[in-house]
Nucleic acid binder design. Sequence first.
DNA 1: TTAGGGTTAG
Length: 633
Amino acid sequence: MSSQNQTLRTLLQPLMQDPPHLSSYAYAPIFQLLTGHNFSKLGQQIHAHMALRGIEPNSFVGAKMVAMYASSGDLDSAIVLFDRIINPSSLLFNSIIRAYTRYGFAEKTIGSYIRMHRLGLRADNFTFPFVLKSCVHLSSRWMGKCVHGQSLRIGLEFDLYVGTSMIDMYVKCGDISDAHKLFDIMPARDVSSWNALIAGYMKDGEVNVAVDLFERMPNRNIVSWTAMISGYTQNGLAEQALDLFDEMLQEGSEVKPNWVTVMSVLPACAHSAALERGRSIHNFASRIGLNSNSSVQTALVAMYAKCGSLVDAHHCFERIHHNEKSLIAWNTMITAYASHGCGMESVLTFEDMIRAGIQPDGITFLGLLSGCSHSGLVDVGLKYFHCMSVVYSVEPRVEHYACVVDLLGRAGRLVEAMELIDQMPMQAGPSIWGALLAACRNHRNLEFAEMAAKKLFVLEPDNSGNYVLLSNMYAEVGMWEEVNNLRAILKSQGMKKSPGGSWIEVNGKAHLFLGGDTSHPQAKEIYMLLEALPEKIKAAGYIPDTSFVLHDVSEEEKEYNLTTHSEKLAIAFGLLNTSPGVVLRVTKNLRICVDCHTATKFISKIYGREIIVRDVNRFHHFKDGSCSCRDYW
DNA sequence: TTAGGGTTAG
């Protein structure tokens, strides 16, 4: 910076002498030097200096000044200046186009491009990338195609930057085949062109094609690796994402992970609840100085929360500088509390956010309402729901209604939930009926359940879960004929009950168990422990709840089915393979059943263990014989 | 100048 100051001083010297007889060109290198360094005050002073001497910036200097203002966050001055210049050049237009794009004003970018065209000014290789980006912003493939045609006429289609931007445009406007066609005919491509195409295939879920491109590309940079890692994560392939991240690190110093890389790999830890992996990536980020990046910190909050450590999540949230706590950061924390059943903390965090002057959005309210729902704060939730539009200008969407149906439904206020559904301004979709059905199941209301299920059978005929749920309810009251009818439908349509699976991380390695699984090397020990368990916990007051077993079998058999639920297997494995006092963290792909929930409470007491179970909906913290959800989920 | 981006109910 000091050599830069030196240069600046040298440049400024002749200008300060009175009277200067310099053309406005002399100012150009100064503004260029000030660009990108947040020197807007100094820039303004020099601009004023010019004005005092009656020096009107020409188009060339104007372009530099527009860039300087835009880069220092002062778009308004950039626009005012642009409008004052009499003979605009392509360069000047490029500057303003770049500025508009940077601030997300896509329509303004397109408008300037059209104006430029009308004035007979040629667009060049610096114009098209931004115009194309704005087409993406407006998600207008039609406009993108027009711009493609114009670049073709000018002979710029095969410019590396223009070509890559075009691939990106086709990818993001949902036309991967056009993107690939263009890629194929480009006479020269660079690593960015490959990266853009890889990201496109990942976005479309064509993971294998992306992998193939990644393996074939002549050079890879950090963006290539990051695109692959985040692509895996987006497609639910958390293990592959983590493995590739490790592979990348083994490449040595060739590729240097940056904040985007770290941010892309963290959701993979969250997805597989790999707390130790997440922690080690956190340490890694700290070592390379990325732990003060607020986006990374936000991703860490989400990772820790999803891996079951609310304490670490909160710690990371607190570490984000007050001015850098974005809407996403607040939303992440509010949602984290909600998923752990800490509704009151969600509410308090929301109020902090409002005090901090952050405008909430739809996701904020989704977190807030689900927090209230999971904690039984029914009236608090209703209060927020009713004022979200009036006070905070956030229109409730169907997801919010689903949350409120859930809020009322969990509390057993099924009639009110039905009334809300009737009054909804939009069509009730699967989310609404699904929430109602789940509530009916918990409160054993067969009449409403049948109605909700009927709607769901039409709305999502392939979702086996709905059939299973209703079937379980019939089984509970001994309506075996109805049970068999539903099972016949399931069978005839080739639907399978999705298998329950749970996993547990021990010494940094995940162990997966399916219901009734005997394939694990330690299966014998696990089953021995589980078989002895009922007697042990029955002595402490446990009564098995067999109503959650689907099959029409004897009570004794049902009880055995219960002992082999996947979460029990995972917990047993954890008890066998960790030292006393170690917290067990189990993740399940379905909702935890009532019996497992009860049994786990007893296990936490008998074995003196804290057990944290993450099911598809939320977290349960078991300790000393009780659960954080207070049996309310 | 281009490519990779964290939060979303049941």
